[in-house]
Amino acid sequence: MVIYGVALLALCYLSGVFLGEALGRLLGVDANVGGVGIAMLLLIVLSNLTSVQLKLGDISATGISFWSAMYIPIVIAMAAKQNVLAAVSSGPMAILAGVAAVVASFLLIPLLSKLGGDRS
């Protein structure tokens, strides 16, 4: 049943967001700490578990892969609802701060990749 896959996904999402929110409260910050990341880990663990125990059927799996495939259209909608005007018209200081952060971060990726590399 397709809904089993969707329900499993939804359950992972809600649990993850809950745990992230709880972690935030625990740390005393007004933000969700890794909720989505926790949900992703949950889904990976559960879907690997179920292959042994509950056996998530092929059709159930399409309930998850559908949303995974909807990801790009959703991201495009997300781009279309950004406050681009505010970013563009806020003056050079804010734009420069954003640009500097991005450039520095991009430059650091190859460095960090090497640091953790050598694993294969």
């Binding site: 996904l9 939804a10 992972c12 999402y13 993850g16 967001v17 909720g35 989505v36 949900a39 992703m40 880990l41 889904l43 990976i44 879907s47 799996a61 998850i64 892969s65 559908f66 949303w67 995974s68 909807m70 990801y71 959703i74 991201v75 909608a77 997300m78």
Partner: peptide
């Protein structure tokens, strides 16, 4: 929807 779809990408 964004976060829901992101979680879904973890499948596989």
């Amino acid at each position: 929807f964004r976060d829901f779809a992101i979680v879904a990408t973890a499948y596989g």
